[in-house]
C-alpha cells in the first residue's frame, strides 16, 4: 500500500509538470506583443515595459519558466494586475463558495444517480430504464446556463422558494448556506447525474450478465442482495472512476453556474480575469483546478484497492 501510494504520487509529478508548462506557455501564445495586448489601448510605453518585465516576457522561455516554477513551489502565483493582489490570496478568498457548490453537487448526484442507474439496469428496457435514458440524453444536451435560468425562472421568479442570486457562507448557518446553494447545485447536478446514472446503468447491466450473478441466483438469494452485493459491488470501480473523471465536467459547469447565480467563487473570478486579460489570475485558477482534478483522481485510484481485492500494489 505504501509503495503503491508513493508510486501513484510520483506518477502525478510529470502530469503536473506538463500542466504547468501548458499554463505557463499560454501567455506566449498571445499574438503580437503580449505585453502591449495585456496593457490595453490606454497604456503608455512605460506601462507596457513594466508589464513586460513583470511577466518576464523579456527573458527566454525556459529561463522565465524556471523562475515562475520556483514561485509555484513556494505557493507564489504572482500578482494580479486587475485586483492588485497576490493571486494566491485571491484564490483563497474565493475558494469557499466554489468548493461548497461542488461538494453539494457531488453529494446530490451520487444520491440520485447510483440508485436510479442500478434500478434501471435491473429492469433493463423497462419504463424506469427508458425514462432515465431519455433524461440522461436530455441532460447531456441542455446547456447548463439554460438549466440555470429555467430553474431561476420557475423556483425563484415564479414561486419564491429560493433566492435568485448570491451566496451565504457556511458560517451564516447551514440552512442559509443550503438555501442559497440548492438551486445552483441542482442546476449543476443535471449533467453530472446524466453521466453517472448512465455509467452506473451500463456497468451494473454488464455485471448482471456475469456468471457470478447467475451463481448468486442459483444460491436462492433475494434479488436485492444479488443486485447490491453482487452486481453493484462489482460495478463500483467503473462508477467511481467516472465520478472522478466527471469532476472535469463539474469544474467547467461551476464556472458557468457561478456566473448565472452570481456566486462570488473561482468561476466568476476566472471570467472577470479573462475579460480583464489578467493572465496571472487566469494561470493561477487553471493550475488550482487542475491540481484539484489530479488529486481527486489520485483518491479515486487509491479507492480501487478497497473496492476490488484483485487490485493490489
Amino acid at each position: 500500500m505504501g509503495a503503491f501510494l508513493a508510486k501513484r504520487i510520483l506518477a502525478t509529478i510529470p502530469v503536473m509538470l506538463i500542466v504547468a508548462i501548458i499554463v505557463f506557455a499560454l501567455i506566449r501564445l498571445v499574438p503580437g506583443d503580449p505585453a502591449a495586448v495585456i496593457a490595453g489601448n490606454m497604456a503608455t510605453n512605460e506601462d507596457i515595459a513594466r508589464i513586460r518585465t513583470e511577466l518576464g516576457l523579456d527573458r527566454g522561455f525556459f529561463a522565465q519558466f524556471a523562475i515562475w516554477a520556483k514561485g509555484l513551489v513556494t505557493g507564489d502565483l504572482g500578482q494580479s494586475f486587475f485586483f492588485k493582489k497576490d493571486v494566491t490570496a485571491l484564490i483563497a478568498e474565493r475558494v469557499g463558495p466554489t468548493l461548497s457548490l461542488a461538494f453539494l453537487t457531488i453529494v446530490i448526484t451520487v444520491l440520485i444517480a447510483v440508485p436510479l442507474g442500478t434500478l434501471a439496469a435491473w429492469r433493463h428496457g423497462g419504463w424506469l430504464d427508458r425514462a432515465l435514458m431519455g433524461f440522461s440524453v436530455l441532460g447531456f444536451s441542455i446547456p447548463v446556463f439554460v438549466i440555470g435560468y429555467l430553474f431561476a425562472y420557475f423556483f425563484a421568479l415564479r414561486i419564491d422558494w429560493f433566492p435568485v442570486q448570491g451566496y451565504k457562507p457556511l458560517s451564516a448557518g447551514i440552512g442559509e448556506w443550503i438555501r442559497h446553494l440548492l438551486l445552483p447545485a441542482l442546476t449543476l447536478s443535471i449533467v453530472y447525474v446524466a453521466l453517472i446514472a448512465r455509467v452506473t446503468r451500463a456497468s451494473v447491466a454488464e455485471a448482471l450478465t456475469e456468471d457470478y450473478v447467475r451463481t448468486a441466483r442459483a444460491k436462492g438469494l433475494p434479488e436485492s442482495r444479488v443486485l447490491i452485493k453482487h452486481a453493484l459491488a462489482n460495478a463500483a470501480v467503473p462508477i467511481v472512476t467516472v465520478i472522478g473523471i466527471g469532476v472535469a465536467l463539474l469544474i467547467g459547469g461551476v464556472v458557468v453556474t457561478e456566473s448565472v447565480f452570481s456566486i462570488p467563487g473561482l468561476g466568476t473570478l476566472t471570467v472577470d480575469a479573462v475579460l480583464a486579460r489578467d493572465f496571472p489570475v487566469i494561470q493561477g485558477v487553471i493550475l488550482f483546478f487542475s491540481v484539484l482534478y489530479v488529486l481527486i483522481n489520485l483518491l479515486v485510484d487509491v479507492s480501487y484497492v478497497f473496492l476490488d481485492p484483485r487490485i493490489r500494489y
Binding site: E210, D211, Y212, R214, T215, A216, K229, H230, A233, N234, A236, L307, D308, P309, R310
Partner: peptide, 13 residues
C-alpha cells in the same frame, strides 16, 4: 458451472 473463475464473485471472499 463451467468457469469457476467467472462463476465466483471476484470482490467477495
Amino acid at each position: 458451472f463451467q468457469e469457476p473463475m467467472t462463476a465466483l464473485n471476484p470482490v467477495m471472499s
